[in-house]
Amino acid sequence: MSSTLRTEGLSKRFGDFHALDGVTMQLPRGARHAVIGPNGAGKTTLINLLTGTVRATAGEVYIGSERVTSLRPEQRVRRGLVRTFQINSLFPELTVLESVLLATCQRTGAALDAWRGLDARAQEFQAARATLRLLKLEGVADVRTRDLAYGEQRLLEIALALACRPRILLLDEPAAGVPRRESVALFEAIAGLPGDLTVLFIEHDMDLVFRFAQRITVLVGGAILTEGTPQEIAGDARVKQIYLGRAA
């Protein structure tokens, strides 16, 4: 199967510190791929390099067959690579619907239209409402983001990304700070996303990871320790040592 997202020897150095060191990975279409690793393993750096907010020291990023290493973040977004943020990065003053509409307008190119009113944008409204339905946010469509419950804000994080119609969705700890019961529901919503969407997610909660990921990459010290199915990873002695060794 052809890959939608691929990296080759992706590296980032800050001075003498290797934040990420030669990461090569490949995600097929429709993958549900988790990246795990202890704090400081380079997970967020990986996301930043993939999205282009941080420039790679070495290595390449490909979306499909296209090399995107030198493209700016917003150019990568238009090629279908969209991320969410570990710490909510929303529009506090806009309503939920306005926020998603905003993201939708960026995708359709309507955002550069300064003449026709928003009200005339039936197509964008429809798409935005569909995105809200997908994440069960239609009930709070007219609530201002700053007045939303935290769990709903986490869903809006994902809704903003989905409104860009990504081919590849990068979720940076989507359940960060969400209580257990809600985080399962959140991941069920993620699992229910269209099957052809490739999802790469970082998550600390191992239960969630083993429940929802098809493949897992283990990052340690900026490099890939191992990669495999949940069963393989669960049975890997080195992974056990890292995660359980300290606890045991």
Partner: peptide
């Protein structure tokens, strides 16, 4: 017209959170 258009909405988005605006393309 400008402030009530999608462009105007984008401006409000940029004022609120330029980093996220880049992240949604």
């Amino acid at each position: 017209r400008l402030v009530r258009s999608p462009f105007g909405l984008s401006l409000r988005g940029i004022r609120g959170n330029p980093a996220r605006m880049r992240a949604i393309g």
